[in-house]
Amino acid sequence: MKRILGLWINGRWREEAVAENALLLDYLRDGLGLTGTKQGCDGGECGACTVLIDDQPRLACSTLAHSVAGRRVETVEGLATEGNISRLQRAFHEKLGTQCGFCTPGMLMAAEGLLRKNPHPGRDEIRSALAGNLCRCTGYVKIIESVEVAAGVPA
């Protein structure tokens, strides 16, 4: 059954009828066409579906859409402003933090959540923040270096 859901998506308020059983992941991808958020393991094990809910990284595959009513949801599509990719995205681009790209949106959102809370994290803090995000290309070193560059650590 559908019910009205109101929430902020990438800074814009939306209200629409959404099925009660919809996962946030399905609502974002199928309902809004925001396919940047990836569906990976579908069981909360890989982190590919990581989005920000009120600035905190959360798994969209293990979250009911209606349970975030009224909250601020941000996806990878919301990182760029006026057509310019963010400092974090640029760091991933320049430091080769992306290989096949499938884990990248989740990595970006987990890292974005960390940098908002802690603008100058150490390597261990970055590793802890990304602990729930798997990279099937195993490009972890470059990913961590990318976050370090975004945090202002000299490359």
């Binding site: 293990s62 009911l64 209606h66 349970s67």
Partner: peptide, 26 residues
């Protein structure tokens, strides 16, 4: 009941748990 959902929601999706009513404790 569902609280954080990290255990129950994947289990529902995998067909391990059946429920026609979910009570969100959040």
């Amino acid at each position: 009941y569902v609280a954080g959902g990290t255990d129950l929601l994947p289990n529902i999706r995998r067909g391990l748990v059946e429920a026609s009513v979910i009570i969100d404790l959040g």
